[in-house]
Amino acid sequence: MLWFLIILGAIAFVVIGMYNSLVRLRVRADSAWADIDVQLKRRWDLIPNLVETVKGSAGHERETLEAVVEARNRAMSAQGPAEAAAAEGVLAGALGKLFALSEAYPQLRAVEGFTDLQGSLDDLEEGVQNARRYYNAVVRDYNTKTQLFPTNVLARLFGHTGRQFFALGDEGQREGPSVNFS
């Protein structure tokens, strides 16, 4: 009888450990997504300033400016990693077109505010990339844990389902907008 209780206690200890590891990874994934969200919000907050700066030097490029604003709004309303990644890819493309205007309007490159915004956006792009890498690593660990036996039994029992990776769509969207004006 004593051996039975010891074995039952050991099994309970292992089950509790597996459950806690699932919860720990889920919380880390939520935290990592929140970090991405903060970086993206900082990026979205920078875009109106960038658009206003460009309006001053190239305001007649209305279509490009409207595309950036529309892409920003779509990105801000995206829900979940897959939708957010698609919207951010469109936004990166629109920002790339916006920065391409500096080739057509050299006076834009001379505006100090534009170059400052350009540097800030470059820093934010790096922050988004780092946060995305960390999030995807945590999601990989969490998804692996929810699929490995015997943890997968507990995962299904307690509603732990896999998470989506934050991955950009096609190859053309994998890089952030180019902000180098050498």
Score class of each variant (00 low, 15 high):
32 A>R: 07
14 V>Y: 15
44 W>F: 15
36 I>H: 07
38 V>G: 06
48 P>G: 03
29 A>T: 02
42 R>L: 10
42 R>M: 09
44 W>D: 04
29 A>H: 02
33 W>P: 05
46 L>T: 06
34 A>Q: 14
24 R>I: 09
38 V>F: 09
27 V>H: 08
15 V>E: 03
27 V>L: 07
46 L>F: 02
14 V>F: 15
47 I>E: 00
31 S>G: 08
24 R>Q: 15
44 W>Y: 14
19 Y>D: 05
15 V>S: 08
18 M>I: 12
46 L>P: 00
29 A>L: 06
38 V>Y: 08
49 N>P: 02
48 P>W: 00
38 V>M: 11
34 A>K: 10
22 L>R: 04
31 S>A: 09
13 F>E: 12
38 V>N: 04
39 Q>F: 10
44 W>M: 08
20 N>E: 06
33 W>F: 10
48 P>K: 03
30 D>R: 11
42 R>P: 06
39 Q>T: 07
16 I>G: 13
33 W>T: 03
39 Q>V: 09
15 V>H: 10
45 D>Q: 06
37 D>G: 00
19 Y>C: 02
33 W>L: 01
21 S>L: 13
24 R>H: 14
45 D>F: 12
23 V>P: 13
36 I>N: 03
47 I>M: 04
38 V>P: 03
44 W>S: 13
13 F>S: 13
33 W>I: 02
48 P>C: 02
43 R>Y: 06
